[in-house]
Design a binder for these strands. Structure first.
Lengths: 205, 205
DNA sequence: CATCGTTGAATGAATGTTCAGTCAGCCAGC
DNA sequence: GCTGGCTGACTGAACATTCATTCAACGATG
């Protein structure tokens, strides 16, 4: 494990990261339907041919890219566990379906939803998004269960409520990037808060 | 308005309908990413070249196809206005995001969501889905307003509640076709009913 | 010298599109 | 009522372009 291998490994990881970055840029620029090896190569600092040195082909690359995107997303959705369940739930909702998004996050969401649009006809994609949704649902369910344990939440079925929240979040995300009137997000969030007040939060109007 | 023009028009409409059908078949068979003029032609009884006689090109055809799909969807979501608001709301929810879907409707939904996945990078698509969502939101809002008028619904903001329902519906639809575990729909619907009981319906537990 | 990341050029297949031409039915003029 | 031109749906074979993929060669590094 001399400098050699470590450097080589680092280089390879760097290259792979650069490929992911180039793929992301090409996707956001041209859309999935027009995402070609040529375009990825154009966004890539190195040559197009090098892509084939690191991946078997386009499919292989895109499968890895989807994994890369989902990992980034889940890292982004991480949040500190120091607060009480109610604050954690609000924070998580803001994080994954907030009303106001910076431009970078908006572009990222658009890319993710475009990938999701391939899932109906691609079992590999569908599998990944199934797992991805499962992870977020678990996150919601744990917070809800903690709130119930603590006594600050009503005794609802955590799994059921979590699935409902997940569906709403996914609805917000797909609508945000496929509609021109983004204003609806605030209304949805306001009504979601009403739901939380009525169904989940204890000792509140 | 002799037989001539009427016959000619009917023929043209028939041909166009056949093209839409062929496009739909090709889309459900191969997915949007692999939807080519060749494949559409293969599903078409007439020749591939004829597509260019009726449309300027692939883009033109697909824009018309999206309109065709949305019109079909909205026709499908039509329902009788004879019942009371609560029954109408439940019926509409069942229609557009029911727990159990026949195979044809499921395939249709998958096709629609695949089209929606193109919207982030296609302004024409985005515009259409914006309008499409607006129509369904109006539908919800009218029913809610009727319920409030009638006194059977609480005095909520119809527009806000409608947007929330729409978001949930869109969440259900995208999840249904992009996940392997379709079971979540029932949970979402159950929790949505809880929301309706708590926030909307009057005189019910 | 050997290795490995890297490249530009090249290849064959597939894509969207064009086009010259066929065919059936209609209408005007005889 | 017949004929001949005319229109428009329709076709098959081509077209140029773009695609994913391959490969022989290069240069730096060890």
């Amino acid at each position: 494990m001399g400098d050699t291998s470590r450097f080589a490994a680092a280089t390879e990881d760097d290259t792979r990261a650069a490929i992911m970055r180039a793929t992301y840029d090409a996707l956001t620029s041209h859309g999935y339907a027009n995402l070609t090896i040529q375009r990825i190569g154009d966004e890539f600092e190195k040559s197009k041919s090098l892509l084939y040195h690191h991946y078997d082909g386009k499919d292989d690359l895109l499968v890895d890219f989807l994994r890369f995107m989902l990992e980034h997303w889940e890292a982004k959705a991480e949040c500190r566990e120091e607060q009480d369940p109610r604050a954690r739930l609000e924070a998580l909702l803001d994080r994954v379906a907030g009303v106001e998004l910076d431009e970078e996050t908006a572009a990222f969401t658009a890319a993710m939803e475009e990938l999701r649009g391939q899932a109906p006809h691609d079992a590999a994609y569908r599998e990944q998004f199934t797992e991805h949704d499962r992870a977020l649902r678990e996150r919601f369910a744990e917070i809800i269960a903690a709130g119930i344990d603590e006594g600050s939440f009503h005794n609802v079925d955590p799994a059921r409520a979590a699935e409902f929240l997940l569906t709403t979040v996914n609805g917000v995300r797909i609508q945000r990037v496929t509609r021109d009137d983004a204003g609806g997000v605030a209304a949805t969030r306001a009504e979601l808060d009403e739901y939380l007040d009525a169904r989940l939060y204890r000792g509140d109007a």
